[in-house]
Design a protein around this nucleic acid. Structure first.
Lengths: 353, 353
DNA sequence: TTGAAAGCGCTAACAC
DNA sequence: GTGTTAGCGCTTTCAA
């Protein structure tokens, strides 16, 4: 096998700091300072270094830099699995902010969805290789052992999507968001309002199902409507799951049948809309439907929903970590996660009362 | 701020190889050999080292190991954006295989979907920090400059989802897959078969739209059916896009209206099914629909489709890279990407001919 | 503002 | 099979 390296005049990949120093006529220490911005360098020297580095195609060796400084410029993002709109959005939001700050993102996928279970492996090996400066845990309930391991690393850790004991977390106020959704329906005049919550298996999401049901019930009681257990169902957060649950609810005889459904995710809400159609019901005339998320497909289906921008949540998590890692980044001022009622075509006054 | 480190008896994160060597009573070289499996160590010594390392909670410092060996145990995966089922599936498949082999995965998102454009940044900075041992490029057409930069790094590179000039690539045989889809419809007796292809903006996907249209036309011609330009539309691979395109096609007067639609992605095919419903057409009685992907939602909508497991494609890409990086991993024997017709409820014989 | 030099923690020749 | 040792390429005191 021919060694291609000697055929190239440009051996960019292996230009090192000494080379830049030699060309510029300064020491490696000065090059390092000029390039990293840490320590003072005269404007002239800095300029010369920058030019030389760029001409030589010099890029710092991350490994050497890390070994010497202890900084990785890399953040680990841990997700329970990837096949969900919410996780991917959070990931994209965090990734974008981190990349912009010059940080790499290493993705750890626990694969809790049946494709495997890399949980132990990730916490006991991968994260401990000190390849990351900080960790973002998305919609995960960590065990005490896992938290201890991360603490031992002495790295900042922030959760998105639910409270981790003793860890700073960004999470929607699920109770209030659910109350808002329910109040929207109540305000339109509905009283037979069904709820499709999350099932037990969705506990990766921190009892989020429980909290949203709680918000739903609070809103009903505040409006002097007694929650009817027959109007409570659960599903797995997916569209087919919502479809099934809705079919069940809508199969009840008229009079007992709900005039509105509040589903705890947009995918389930869309399932409910499709179920209604298949039963010959017209949305919103015969049935109002509201979801939570503002999923990609929500507007296509005309779904009224509570928007919660997970992308923004990811960016916010990144921002707050960067504030700890970079001297010149300030912690985000507003750390309250916004949510917002978006009224589309799937909700209206009930036909009959 | 109190330094917590002294409060912990276990300073796991900072145990180094020298410590393990001291406890075991051997040299650091032997510890390194025992732990990495490179070079020979007596079974007894190995056992002792493993025990000590585990008891001390020793985990190798990736940076030091990389600096000394040149190996990162890390693979970069570059995606055009994340908001697409296909990309996420490929990512998940590759990630799982790589993690299993002890490799980390660093995700580079070019954000070509309007949320930004990190392309230059990624290729000119991130990838050149030599943090990765290899690169997987998903559905990307790389420029010569980009390829050159990666070549200069002297790292294995494999593409998934389309041919990159001069680079090994895993890609579906799009022409044949499209032909199979069209032949299914022809076989059922359809002749007025419309096609919803990908639009120009989808060129991130390597002229995949063109190839699939080609397969469609080949199949028609082979069956002595003249392709009708009026039956050709394009959309953006999304559900709403497919819906719009289908509405357009189905708006034609009976007789000119297609009896079947072949959409180049399942999401568009689902959009077509919904469009048909909204027009009062019954699928498959009045209209047959077939897609490509076997998307998560395909079975819910009863969609007949050409399955192309992107998860498997990701795993295969990972496997072939590992074969180059690890002495004991063999290149995958079968590198032909399988695709398969899955017949569900969205296709049947045409009502009239 | 700049340079010299001591590591950072590990791996891989090489010697035994 | 194991130990010695010279780096890997950078950052960061410390001195000038």
């Amino acid at each position: 096998m021919i060694d291609l390296r000697n055929l190239h005049s440009e051996r960019e990949a292996s230009v090192n700091i000494a080379e830049v120093a030699r060309v510029t006529g300064v020491s490696t220490a000065t090059v390092s300072r000029a390039l990293s911005g840490r320590g003072s360098v005269s404007p002239t020297t800095r300029e010369k270094v920058l030019t030389a580095a760029s001409e030589l195609g010099y890029v710092v060796s991350q490994a050497a830099s890390t070994l010497a400084s202890g900084r990785n410029r890399n953040v680990g993002i841990v997700v329970p699995f990837l096949e969900k709109w919410f996780f991917v959005e959070v990931l994209a939001g965090a990734q974008e902010r981190l990349n912009r700050a010059g940080y790499d993102v290493t993705l750890y996928n626990l694969n809790l969805d049946g494709h495997g279970d890399e949980r132990r492996e990730v916490f006991e090996n991968f994260l401990l290789r000190r390849r990351v400066d900080a960790v973002i845990a998305v919609s995960l309930e960590l065990t005490d052992g896992e938290i201890a391991r991360l603490h031992a690393l002495d790295k900042p850790l922030v959760g998105v999507g639910g409270p981790i004991t003793g860890v700073r977390t960004l999470a929607l106020d699920d109770v209030r968001a659910a109350r808002l959704a329910t109040e929207h329906l109540l305000g339109l005049g509905h009283t037979r309002i069904a709820h499709i919550g999350g099932d037990d298996a969705s506990d990766v999401d921190f009892h989020l199902p429980t909290k949203r049901r709680q918000g739903y019930e609070e809103a009903l009681r505040a409006a002097r409507v007694t929650p009817d257990p027959a109007l409570l169902t659960t599903a797995d957060f997916t569209l087919p799951g919502g479809y099934q649950a809705a079919k069940q609810l809508l199969g009840a005889p008229v009079g007992q049948r709900p005039t509105a459904i509040f589903a705890t995710s947009d995918e389930m809400a869309i399932g409910a809309i499709l179920a209604a159609r298949d039963l010959g019901l017209v949305v919103p005339r015969d049935l109002s439907v509201i979801g939570v998320d503002d999923h990609d497909l929500a507007s296509f289906f005309g779904l009224t929903t509570i928007a919660q921008s997970p992308r923004h949540q990811g960016a916010l998590a990144a921002e707050s970590l960067l504030a700890e890692l970079e001297p010149d980044v300030h912690p985000p001022i507003d750390t309250v996660l916004p949510f917002e009622l978006i009224v589309r075509d799937s909700t209206s006054r009930p036909l009959v009362d």
